[in-house]
């Protein structure tokens, strides 16, 4: 179990340039990404993307840039979130698990096209 900062990006997928764009937004501000997890959550191509990132003095600027990127509906920031990645083998079958534990009631900062909500 590791604890860290998680950025959740709610965005609309058209092609993989969406992912390139999001990741390069962090890269341009010299922010390292520990892990990425994403999934489609809506039939209209809405995706939730979770990024485990290292904190940095550029962090807020990166979040603001993400939140004003075309195709990004909003960005949420979770501080001190636990995540767990395990690979186990049972009867020769490899099972990978990846869990992000976001406690109920945790303070979240949410950014969307210049608007900030908690």
């Amino acid at each position: 179990m590791t604890r860290g900062k998680v950025v959740k990006v709610v965005c609309h997928y058209r092609d993989a340039s969406l992912l390139e764009g999001l990741i390069s937004t962090l890269r341009k501000l010299l922010i390292d990404i520990d892990w990425i997890y994403g999934r489609m959550v809506g039939d209209d191509g809405t995706y939730e993307l979770y990024l485990g990132v290292k904190d940095s003095s550029n962090f807020l600027n990166a979040v603001l840039d993400l939140s004003t990127a075309v195709n990004v509906a909003r960005v949420e920031v979770f501080n001190n979130v636990d995540f767990d990645s395990r690979v186990s083998s049972e009867d020769g079958v490899v099972i990978e698990t990846f869990k992000i534990y976001i406690p109920k009631g945790i303070k979240t900062d949410c950014y969307s096209w210049g608007e900030v909500c908690g």
């Binding site: 965005c11 609309h12 191509g45 809405t46 075309v70 096209w113 608007e115």
Partner: peptide, 9 residues
């Protein structure tokens, strides 16, 4: 129609 885009409020 551009999903995930809106002009600044």
């Amino acid at each position: 129609v551009v999903l995930g885009y809106r002009p600044f409020k």
